[in-house]
């Protein structure tokens, strides 16, 4: 007898197209008290699939989760090349806003890397219940983060295998598994990269009223700021996960990080219908 036979359906897994954006839904079959949706935003070159481990985790923990692919990325409608080259941060912010509108209630915004700075910018205008920034790029208040010159504007940005492995991965991934990961990557707009991590994206922290959590990986080899540095800007909570790289959602530290975030979210957003845990008097 397998668990699947005993309880064949615990999670609902649906695909949606919302204003030409692909949104992967994963949520518990029977809704829990945790009704605030988590909206997950991937980083550069990635897609909704970057959350494929965390979505079932958070859904099993009770949260309805929605991972979007930004315009021109995996599963979403393609953008013609000229427009794609000239995309800006505000285009991605509009993507988040349109999916948040569709969700119908202020979500928890969870952004990774480039998705993190898009989330910070979006949170200025999009009503949100909480924000979790995972190995996130910071705003201009941190200064310039990306080393080297900006990418050339005449072609989409796509990392080589060696670059992707070096920048994003900490775990020693088997070649076959890494190839699968690499095949899922899509080109990134140089227009967006030119304003992210280069000290050109201002975020008005005063406009962000909800709780913020900054998460970093101790072994992150990309250029994103340390979580404590980012947390200072938003007066936020933070932690750094040992033995975790930049794409920590896909690595062996994945579930440990997710557990921490889940506990933080429950602490901030509450389980108000649960009984309090008490200690015996004796």
């Amino acid at each position: 007898m397998t668990f699947a036979k005993l309880t064949p359906q615990l999670l609902i897994d649906n695909d949606h197209m919302v204003n030409s954006l692909f949104v992967k839904e994963c949520r518990p079959l029977n809704p829990t008290q945790l009704t605030t949706p988590i909206l997950m935003v991937h980083g550069s070159n990635h897609g909704w699939w970057a959350w494929r481990v965390w979505q079932p985790f958070f859904a099993a923990a009770g949260w309805p989760t929605y991972a979007l692919s930004l315009r021109g990325h995996y599963g979403s409608a393609s953008v013609n090349e000229n427009d794609f080259l000239n995309l800006t941060m505000s285009d991605y912010v509009e993507d988040i806003a349109s999916v948040a509108r569709w969700l119908g209630k202020p979500p928890i915004l969870m952004g990774h890397s480039l998705g993190g700075i898009v989330v910070q910018k979006a949170a200025e205008t999009v009503s949100s219940a909480a924000i979790a920034l995972i190995a996130s790029i910071g705003p201009s208040a941190i200064g310039r983060q990306r080393p080297g010159p900006p990418p050339p504007m005449d072609k989409p940005v796509f990392p080589t295998k060696a670059e992707a492995l070096e920048r994003w991965m900490y775990d020693p991934w088997p070649e076959e598994r890494f190839d699968q990961f690499y095949e899922c990557l899509t080109p990134e707009s140089p227009g967006v990269l030119a304003t992210s991590g280069t000290g050109l994206t201002d975020v008005n922290a005063e406009l962000i009223k909800c709780p913020v959590l900054c998460v970093g990986g101790s072994e992150d080899r990309s250029y994103v700021p340390k979580p404590e540095k980012l947390a200072e800007i938003y007066n936020a909570d933070w932690f750094e996960q040992p033995d975790a790289g930049h794409d920590m959602m896909l690595e062996s530290a994945s579930l440990d990080v997710a557990q921490q975030i889940n506990q933080w979210l429950i602490g901030k957003l509450g389980l108000d219908r649960s009984s309090k845990i008490k200690t015996a008097n004796s």
């Binding site: 509108r101 569709w102 119908g104």
Partner: peptide, 11 residues
């Protein structure tokens, strides 16, 4: 239903 999104089906 599709346009209403996941939390506003009834609405």
């Amino acid at each position: 239903v599709r346009m209403g999104g996941p939390t506003r089906t009834a609405e």
